[in-house]
Computed example of a mutant assay.
Amino acid sequence: MNIMMIAVVIAVAAIAAAAAVALRVTWKLTHPRRKPVESRPEEYSLQAYESVSFPSRESGITIRGWYIPAEGNGFEKSERTLIFSHGYGQNRLEPHLPALSLAADLVSKGYNVLLFDFRNSGESSPALTTIGLREQQDLLGAIDFVKATRPEQKIGLVGFSMGAATSLMVGGLDERVETIIADSPFYSLQEYLEENLPQWTGLPRFPFNWLILTLSPLMLRANPRHVRPYEAVRQADKPILFIHGTKDATVPCSNSEQLYRLVTHEASRLWLVPGTGHVRSYPHDPEAYIDHVIDFLRHAWNSEAETKSFAHAKKPSPID
């Protein structure tokens, strides 16, 4: 065997090994370890709630969660439901918030809350995790569920990280959704992964970024190029609140800044929270977080006359 042949064999072996590693890492990224649902609403003084299940828009997937009404927990009956969407590798609890604490705060302000587990999370059906692509079908299923069981409800979406991006993509286009709160979303999954994939994989940018981003759509039929929150934001004629920590090293706050530049509704807002990390704005200062969210929702769900006058106001600057 001559030197050229040896070199070719070594090169082919190296490429095959790199491709095998890339596929293995891709499989792990799309099958994150499922976290159990270990807390209950009662631990946050939410005594009245319903354990619910409903189909995703994708056949064969059952989504599970809790519907927590304001009425029954000591507050007036509400006709507004906020649907929470959790981040990658988490579940309905979003434990670093925790989501139940935020839900309790919002219920006390007169909002109903639906928390659910995306596919392959918590107690929902096993399936491929696609970082916002097919998860849109799960969120659509949640909206279908609320509208089918409580047709009088007005719907707002509250998402965190991957769930924020998913909320933007679904809520931006679905006319049943009236307002969106996006905490730490990414602008575009393809662009985000091109820049940040080594942080997820622990592998060198070359050659693994190219291998993973090229092979995964072919093997998994899930292309990150199709996860484009920015396109939905451009088309969303509804109020959107972006919340992002300025010290977010996972999804830099520039993602929300870019998205905010695309909004079309004058009631949209951007709140940049100084010194906080990824999805850490609520635990950093729960009172300030609730104040910003409630003020935004009250403007977003104002009377028709007030909404018309508010729409002529200048789009506000980020709140420091």
Score class of each variant (00 low, 15 high):
Q47I: 10
L140N: 15
W200L: 10
R280P: 07
S53D: 12
L97F: 05
P151V: 09
D237Q: 15
A236Y: 06
N112L: 05
P239D: 08
A48P: 03
H96F: 10
G89C: 01
L168W: 00
E58R: 13
E71G: 01
V146C: 05
R33T: 13
R234Y: 06
S281W: 01
V9G: 13
S309C: 11
D105K: 02
L82D: 00
I240E: 04
C253R: 02
A222Y: 03
N255W: 00
V9Q: 14
H284Y: 10
G202D: 07
T264A: 11
L100R: 00
E58N: 07
S56R: 05
Q153K: 09
A103L: 01
Q136W: 07
A13L: 15
A11S: 13
M5T: 14
V37N: 07
I181D: 00
T246N: 09
S317T: 15
H31V: 08
H226P: 05
A11R: 08
G65C: 08
T130V: 02
Q137T: 13
L133Q: 04
S303V: 05
A148R: 11
H278R: 07
E266G: 14
T201S: 11
Y260E: 05
L140V: 15
W271N: 04
P41G: 06
K35S: 06
E194P: 10
S78M: 03
E178K: 12
L128F: 09
W301Y: 14
Y88V: 04
L157T: 01
I63G: 02
Y67E: 03
N112S: 02
R24P: 06
G159R: 01
Q199Y: 12
Q258R: 15
G171D: 04
P36R: 05
H86L: 00
Q90F: 07
K28T: 11
S121N: 09
P95I: 04
E38L: 11
H244I: 10
S216H: 10
T26R: 08
I10L: 14
A249I: 08
S309D: 12
P36V: 02
E191P: 08
R205T: 13
I290P: 05
L259K: 05
T30V: 09
Y111H: 01
L157F: 07
A16R: 09
N209F: 14
D295C: 04
D248V: 05
H312M: 14
S161M: 03
P69Q: 07
G110F: 02
